[in-house]
């Protein structure tokens, strides 16, 4: 449970201390990629809680989503259409949806645990 959070913290520290920077022109692609990654992560967490987690689906989804989002943003820049908004919208909606489902599942399990404890007493 704590290992993924530790991984996140290590990633942030490493990113901050390696002084690794990307050119300004590409920062919008990276932000879209971050959004896609977060969406996939929460999707994975939800699937895990629903017991339908498949690591192949998760890993391929993670990388293709990032690549697709960045590619879409790139295409949008070259076509003069704000296509990245489509990615932002899609990932944003899914992100909220996933988080809501995760919350429900966690709430359900928590309440059912409480009920079980009461019944056993």
């Amino acid at each position: 449970m704590w290992l993924p959070i530790l991984g996140l913290l290590i990633g942030i520290f490493l990113g901050l201390f390696t002084e690794f920077r990307i050119p300004d022109a590409y920062s919008s692609y990276l932000s879209i990629a971050v959004l896609a990654a977060l969406d996939t992560l929460f999707g994975g967490v939800r699937a895990h809680l629903e017991n339908v987690f498949n690591e192949k689906v998760f890993l391929t989804g993670f990388f293709t989503n990032i690549a697709l989002a960045a590619g879409l943003a790139f295409l949008g820049v070259h076509l003069g259409v704000d296509l990245y908004l489509a990615a932002v919208f899609a990932f944003g909606v899914r992100l909220f949806h996933n988080i809501a489902l995760i919350r429900r599942i966690l709430l359900d399990s928590w309440f059912s645990k409480g009920k079980d404890r009461k019944e056993t007493q």
Binding site: G11, L14, G15, F20, L30
Partner: peptide
């Protein structure tokens, strides 16, 4: 999950910087 969160953390840090 750890690998994925690590990548996300790295990307967020780079973007932040």
């Amino acid at each position: 999950f750890t690998i994925v969160t690590f990548i996300i953390g790295f990307m967020i840090a780079v973007q932040f910087q």
